[in-house]
């Protein structure tokens, strides 16, 4: 192998950006669809917006196989323990999209039984406004998640077992 071969075959980078590049282009979403936003999310997966273009087409209905939780729909007081359990079952690193008005704030359902925003109880990275949001909005949120991942530092993931 001569010098020119090395130049055309070897790419130098940092471990950090290589890992982030891999993570952000291979998100495995776990849809938590409880209402009409769940239906709208199916449109996001379909041909017109096609999130396979962002490497996020591998929808897993098992939290243990996914790293992006998409909460689509209103969460009732009976569903919140389920959502918390599912979030805790997801392996690190993980990200959360709160899709639509209901998941983000309770929407029009200001009643005893509807959680007024899931961010009161679980961490949320990106909120998508709308009732329901347009598929383009969800794609935008996916790109925002990719930007977040791109900016992550490996030092952020220092072992936190002492916590």
């Amino acid at each position: 192998m001569n010098h020119n071969d090395i130049k055309s075959n070897v790419l130098t980078t940092t471990l950090e950006s290589a890992i982030n590049w891999g993570r952000k282009n291979s998100l495995w979403p776990m849809p938590f669809g409880t209402a009409c936003c769940g239906i709208e999310f199916m449109a996001v997966l379909a041909a017109r917006t096609d999130i396979a273009r962002f490497g996020a087409e591998a929808i897993r209905f098992s939290p243990r196989q996914s790293d992006l939780l998409i909460v689509a729909g209103r969460i009732s007081i009976k569903m919140m323990p389920v959502l918390i359990r599912i979030y805790e079952q997801m392996p690190e690193p993980k990200w959360v999209i709160s899709m639509g008005a209901c998941a983000s704030s309770g929407g029009v359902f200001d009643t005893y039984s509807v959680i007024q925003g899931i961010d009161q109880f679980i961490p949320v990275d990106v909120y998508v406004p709308g009732c329901p949001p347009r598929p383009e909005g969800v794609v935008e949120s996916l790109m925002k998640i990719q930007n977040l991942i791109d900016k992550e530092k490996l030092s952020d993931y220092a072992l936190s077992s002492s916590k």
């Binding site: 007081i77 918390i84 690190e92 005893y112 992550e152």
Partner: peptide
């Protein structure tokens, strides 16, 4: 029994009664 007319519309704080889950890894 929440559909009784004398039950508060916003409930009796049931919807705030959940544990707050932190990020597993504290990102700086």
């Amino acid at each position: 029994h929440p559909l009784k007319k004398d039950y508060p519309r916003l409930g009796r704080k049931e919807r705030g009664d959940f544990p707050v889950i932190d990020r597993g890894i504290q990102k700086q």
